[in-house]
Amino acid sequence: MTFDWWTLGLQTVNFAVLVWLLHRLLYQPVLRMIDSRRAEMEKQYAEANAATVKAQQELAEVEAARAKIAGEREATLTMAAAQAEEAAKARRAQAESEAAVLLEGARKSIAEERQQVVAEARSVAVDLGAEVARRLLEAAPLKARSEAWLDQIDHYLAALPRSERIALAKQLENSEALVVVTASPLRPEEAETWRAQLRRLLGDGVSVTFNADPLLLAGAELHFPAAVLRFSWQNALQLARLELEAS
């Protein structure tokens, strides 16, 4: 068996050409395709990592927003509860204030009504007392009634300081008359008794005239030109009524 160097050389050249063709037409494109795929995969991986990071960031933001919303909700609920409590307290205080005003108004109204009823009762009692006194007085003799009031007036004038009695007498100068008003007309002899008694106390020259006024109920009034001395039941009852109304 002989070895053919030409054949070996041709086969070597053919193998080299084949290797070059494979390298040129297959290996390099495959490497380029692999590099391209690797680059694409790396790009996709980077994008996926970026998306993951972004998603994590967005998730963190969502969690933060959720936590903020939860906090705001809690704060809002707390504030709403506090406002509701304050509103309830205000309404309760207003209701208590209105109730106190109503109660005070009711108390004042009751007190005013009570005072009015008491005043009316006192007025009725005074009127009733006046009526009873008038009826009792009617049963008394006229002379006794006249003498009793004259004695009271006599004691009053006699007890006055001399200066005051002189001042009363000076009002009756220059023909001025002292008018004696009694509840019922005096008989002539009674009028003379009164005139003599008054002149004894106020002066002999005093002019005394007499009038009657049934509204006095009992007693008399001395009408000086500038003063009136009242000794009547009407005046006593009026004073009693004023005292009752003031109490």
Rank of each mutant, 00 (worst) to 15 (best):
A144N: 02
A196Q: 15
L128P: 01
A227T: 13
L217M: 08
H23M: 01
S207R: 11
L25I: 08
N174I: 01
L201D: 06
L102Q: 02
M41T: 10
V206C: 04
A226I: 02
M79L: 09
V181G: 01
V132W: 11
D4M: 00
Q197W: 05
L217D: 00
E63P: 03
F224K: 00
R241C: 09
E47W: 10
Q57N: 05
N49D: 08
W194C: 01
L8E: 01
S163N: 13
V17D: 04
A99D: 06
E243I: 02
V206G: 07
A226G: 05
A84S: 11
V124A: 14
L22C: 13
E113Y: 02
T12M: 15
A39Q: 15
A81N: 11
G71Y: 15
V208W: 06
Q44D: 09
A80N: 07
A82C: 04
R199I: 02
L25E: 01
E42K: 00
V62D: 12
M79T: 07
S97W: 09
Q56T: 11
L244Q: 09
L150H: 02
Q11S: 06
R162E: 05
E243F: 01
V181H: 00
R122D: 11
V62Y: 09
A88Y: 12
A130Y: 00
A106Q: 11
E138L: 15
T2M: 09
A148G: 06
R241D: 06
T52M: 14
A236L: 15
A144L: 12
H155G: 05
A144T: 04
L150R: 05
A125Q: 11
Q56R: 07
Y156V: 00
L178T: 03
Q171K: 04
W149N: 01
V101T: 09
P29M: 07
A87V: 00
L21M: 10
E245V: 02
D204A: 12
R134W: 12
A75L: 15
E104D: 08
V208M: 10
L26G: 09
R91Y: 14
L137R: 07
T76C: 01
K143A: 14
L18M: 15
K54D: 00
V13G: 01
Q94D: 08
R92K: 15
Q94M: 07
A100K: 14
L217N: 12
A99T: 06
L244G: 10
R73L: 15
L202R: 03
L202H: 07
V13T: 00
L31G: 05
L244D: 10
K68T: 14
L26Y: 13
A227W: 04
L215R: 13
S247D: 04
L222C: 08
S146M: 13
L216T: 05
E86Y: 10
R66F: 12
T76M: 09
L8Y: 06
Q116P: 11
E131W: 10
Y45E: 13
K89Y: 04
S163G: 13
L8V: 12
E47M: 15
P29L: 10
T52D: 03
L26R: 10
L172E: 03
S109V: 13
A226D: 04
E221K: 06
L244M: 11
Q116D: 14
Q57V: 10
R66C: 06
E74G: 14
A46H: 00
V179S: 07
A81L: 12
V53A: 15
L59I: 07
R135A: 14
A67P: 06
R32H: 03
H223V: 15
E58Q: 15
Q94C: 01
V132Y: 03
A240Q: 14
E113M: 06
L168E: 08
S184E: 11
Q44F: 08
E138N: 13
